[in-house]
Nucleic acid binder design. Structure first.
Lengths: 208, 208
DNA sequence: AATTCCGGAGAACAGTTGTTAACTGCATGG
DNA sequence: CCATGCAGTTAACAACTGTTCTCCGGAATT
């Protein structure tokens, strides 16, 4: 299946990746809808027209970025939901993993947070679809928990969505705290953990 | 106090308002960081240079839009938190009010959702500050509730933030459902209500 | 009634944008 | 080894951008 790409295609994917990375960096200070194609090629050190060999437009590039950014998030969600331990331990571990992910891929997180409600429809939809897949995955993990007994499918999906949204909010808060003092990070950690704890308590008493 | 503005200043505020409204409309299809000053003046039917009489830049205009958009939201929050009745009634009423607000000011909601994490720092900060004020207000309302007995200040702020974020998420969902079928709006209504209900349950058992 | 103030218009600027066409050189497949 | 394919280049285009300076006309002030 995985042919060792020819020299030709290898070089192509290399500049394609360079374009994506340059775009991600430029997007730290603006939104996708204002990102110019020339701006990106200039940052890479390539002719403007080379852009068209890889993407039809910056919109197109944005959609590709969604896959890349949320692709890196996918394994993390798996790790979080498959963590063992009691409720508090799992929450602490989840927040910790989120913080670490933001440290590792800050521009990915920024891009998703920014473009989730951004000005480019196809990108918004790509993010929405991808997040819906995450939510389904979280829901599937919740079903296996004995606590899920008696829960309707709809309610489980609601809970999963609540968790996913909280994770995104937490990630966004960690991002803002990235260049701040360590104490700010600690504050965010505690806040996010307490939010998740309250949701877990609500979950435990949902069927009362 | 309220002088009837001179003809001069009245006309000025009129075109200023026209600029804000035109910008808000243009921002339905893009982000603030890609909004051009000429674009706005063209939509109003005024010379590009007239823009400078009112704003230093589109960033400046964006900050002004934050006040306008969240100003309209302020009284709604007051209404929600001051509503009487048991938990379920209050939740139903709150979701209803949110839906109605989105119907009345869709572009305001869109602007806030989009620029909360958007590419223009001063605007992000203005939104963050304004939302923090809302959260404080919600917290102040929560304190008056007998259920708040034994709660720490920090936990109350956490809960208030949770509520505010959920309201914003609900508003954003209603916005997406605006041009969709009625059944989609109903789905969002039920989803938002159940989310708030779960949070309220968690709140009721927080001190266990 | 004369003077100042000021919101807006007009023209011009240098710089940027997306897109087109025709090209070059090198890896690829016959 | 030769012919084809194709990633990237070069040059040029019309259209657009933010910003400056100069000016106009009418409201505001005295």
């Amino acid at each position: 299946m995985s042919h060792t790409l020819g020299l030709r295609q290898a070089q192509k994917q290399k500049t394609r990746q360079a374009l994506l990375e340059a775009a991600l960096e430029l997007l730290e200070g603006q939104s996708l809808s204002s990102l110019g194609l020339r701006e990106v090629t200039r940052a890479v050190g390539v002719a403007p027209t080379a852009f068209y060999r890889h993407f039809r437009s910056t919109e197109d590039l944005g959609v590709a970025l969604v896959e890349e950014a949320l692709g890196s998030l996918h394994p993390m969600i798996r790790t979080i939901v498959s963590t063992a331990g009691d409720s508090d331990e799992r929450i602490t571990r989840a927040v910790e993993l989120i913080a670490r992910h933001v440290d590792a891929y800050p521009s990915h997180v920024r891009f998703i947070a920014r473009e989730q409600h951004g000005g480019v429809r196809p990108v918004r939809e790509a993010i929405r679809n991808e997040l819906a897949r995450f939510t389904e995955e979280v829901k599937a993990a919740l079903v296996t928990d004995p606590m899920a007994e008696g829960w309707s499918d709809d309610d489980l999906l609601m809970l999963a969505g609540l968790y996913v949204d909280q994770m995104l909010i937490a990630a966004s808060l960690f991002l803002e705290a990235l260049e701040g003092p360590e104490e700010e990070r600690q504050r965010v950690t505690r806040l996010a953990a307490r939010r998740l704890r309250l949701i877990s308590i609500g979950r435990a008493h949902w069927l009362d």
